[in-house]
């Protein structure tokens, strides 16, 4: 029993050590960005990653934001007293529920489900077929070519997804409110929401995107590094990384929200 517990704790300790090592290695390899030609290679890979991760997620992001924004407002009407101007209440509710919590969480889940799994599969494939060795044979850094663009593109994509999600859900919520209160102008509604967004709100959202996105990327890279010689190693890497990413991202969100808004 003690042996099993020890092995588990050692595994957890090694996991955190690996993630920290990977972070240090990624930061170290950023030095290549000072080399103009290498910066061009990075830029090519970064744009590809940002397009795949951020831009191509717009469709699913829009669909979910429309549903969440309109559904929440529709449900809210069911509990609000009729005939009363509730713009302040809507705005407050929106900032607390959607902008603070749901937007980041759902955007993170979309990033994990759409892009992190794809990156784990893609890099796992490269590892399985010794394509990292090919770069090493050309004296090129695989960390710089493949991992650095992911490390930088994931947080930026997540931040863009947060902003996009919030914009679409605000619009869809407004459309639902119009059904009940056609006199409410979009400017008034938007101003009420913006008035509720404090500097702390911005800092926490940025932290969730930047720390969360980086961690999601690093966890994908960590698990693709575990792919050895079997094809099933890739499936295992995807499964393990998705679990770890969901736990990490939800924990990060809860911890940051509690620290910022509760303590």
């Amino acid at each position: 029993m003690i042996g099993v517990l020890g092995a588990y704790l050692r595994g957890v300790f090694n996991y955190f050590l690996d993630i920290s090592g990977l972070l240090a290695l990624t930061i170290k390899e950023s030095r290549h960005l000072l080399h103009p030609a290498r910066r061009n290679i990075f830029w090519m890979m970064f744009k590809r990653q940002l397009y795949n991760t951020g831009v191509r997620a717009i469709g699913i992001n829009t669909a979910i934001a429309l549903i969440i924004g309109s559904l929440m407002m529709a449900r809210l009407y069911a509990v609000l007293p009729p005939g009363k101007s509730m713009v302040e209440f809507y705005a407050n509710f929106f900032v607390i529920v959607v902008i603070r919590e749901l937007g980041p969480l759902i955007s993170g889940v979309i990033l994990i489900a759409r892009s992190a799994t794809a990156i784990t599969a893609e890099l796992g494939h490269l590892k399985l077929y010794n394509e990292f060795e090919v770069l090493k044979a050309q004296q090129m850094s695989p960390i710089f070519i493949f991992l650095l663009p992911v490390f930088f593109a994931f947080p930026l994509s997540l931040l863009l997804m947060f902003i996009f999600f919030n914009a679409v859900s605000i619009s869809s919520a407004y459309l639902v409110i119009l059904l009940d209160d056609p006199s409410l102008s979009f400017t008034v509604f938007l101003s009420a929401i913006l008035a509720k967004i404090t500097g702390l709100e911005v800092v926490i959202t940025l932290s969730k995107a930047l720390i969360g996105g980086s961690l999601i990327g690093l966890i994908s890279l960590h698990f693709c590094g575990r792919v050895a010689g079997r094809f099933t190693d890739i499936s295992r890497a995807i499964s393990s990384s998705t679990t770890a990413q969901l736990i990490t991202f939800f924990t990060l969100n809860v911890v940051l929200s509690l620290m910022a808004y509760k303590l």
Binding site: R38, E131, A137, Q138, I145
Partner: peptide, 22 residues
Amino acid sequence: GGLVSLFTVYNNIALPLKYHRN
């Protein structure tokens, strides 16, 4: 093997040159 499957043939040939030489 020896090539990176994410890149085209041209990029496989060009990238090492771009990476090391100006």
